[in-house]
């Protein structure tokens, strides 16, 4: 199934190197990561060394070689959010979920990412979970926000 999906994504693009990033972004979106088979197939399709695609996958923050969680928590640490206390939120999220930045909870529910500016600085500090913005967040509110995403009672 996954393999079919991968080849569907790869074959959609012309055999030109410039589509490497776009194809990998599509894989990322569809599978939540770039599997090894994906890199192999793309390298063959674009006729380029797999190592080069691998280095792209590790260079670009939008790409990941390990599966990401079901919900992506983007905690903004842009300057505006930083000086309005995003550090406290980070501590709080890490404590509750038991993961650090870049990690995924063992149950695969959450991935925590620290990002730079989500373009909503007026509401800083900001947390973006999937597509939903939470603005002017205080450490107090964090447990409540997260619990809405927990399918099981994990908190």
């Amino acid at each position: 199934m996954a393999n079919q999906e991968i080849s569907g994504i790869v074959m959609k693009y012309p055999q030109e190197r410039r589509f490497a990033l776009a194809a990998m972004q599509d894989m990322q979106r569809a599978l939540s990561y770039i599997p090894r088979e994906g890199l192999e197939l793309l390298a063959e399709h674009l006729q380029c060394p797999m190592a080069e695609l691998y280095s792209m996958a590790t260079f670009y923050k939008a790409l990941s070689l390990r599966p990401r969680g079901k919900h992506i928590i983007k905690l903004c640490n842009g300057t505006a959010c930083h000086i309005r206390g995003s550090v406290n939120l980070r501590k709080c999220v890490s404590e509750i979920l038991g993961i650090e930045a870049g990690e995924t909870t063992p149950d695969g529910l959450f991935t925590l990412e620290i990002v730079n500016c989500l373009g909503a600085c007026a509401s800083s500090p900001v947390i973006l979970i999937d597509d939903i913005f939470y603005g002017d967040v205080t450490a107090e509110q964090v447990p409540e926000i997260l619990s809405a995403y927990c399918e099981k009672e994990t908190i």
């Binding site: 640490n77 842009g78 300057t79 505006a80 730079n116 500016c117 909503a120």
Partner: peptide, 11 residues
Amino acid sequence: EGDPGAFMDGS
């Protein structure tokens, strides 16, 4: 627009 804390280009 990578500058953290700027959002004019996006706007």
